[in-house]
Amino acid sequence: MAELTAKSPCAGRLPLTIGAATVTEETLGPMTSIAPYRGRQADLAAALAAAHGLGWPQPNRSLTGAGVRLIWFGRDQALLTGAVADPALEDMAALADQSDAWAAVRLQGEAAEAVLARLVPVDLRRAVFAPGATLRSQLGHMPASLTRLDDHGFLILVYRSMAGTLLHDLKTAMEAAAARG
């Protein structure tokens, strides 16, 4: 058998620092999308609390626990990262392994908001998009998931096939933001 080496979506292309913003690749571990079956939302929230210590996230919110993160990912959908989803959840929700499906990067720095303001048609300033807030929108022309991690840091997820485009768009916006000074 050939020994295959897993390659991350942004391997060899990160980190990247331009001006007051840095992009690094995030390793989130196992990723599972969770979509509750009709009428099972309450049961699912209880099962999530028992298995992973997290409830069901409100729209546009993410929850963090011990090594795990649960990101609201759309209508009646959330993404669990950092742990393999407990099989007990399968009774209440459709689970789908997404571990290799997404490119995950962290955009960090004083200029992070200015960079994203050029790419995302939503107000992402700290006052209205606080740590823990998340949303689904578009970054350039790509569907994306954005989560604020701290005062100057964002987690960005796009389809893995678009990793190159994501980095190109981020680089262009970072150069433009840096040129403004």
Binding site: P59, N60, P121, V122, R136, Q138
Partner: peptide, 10 residues
């Protein structure tokens, strides 16, 4: 109703 005000292009 879930996401709030968004641009028409979404």
């Amino acid at each position: 109703p879930l996401c709030g005000p968004r641009d028409r292009r979404e």
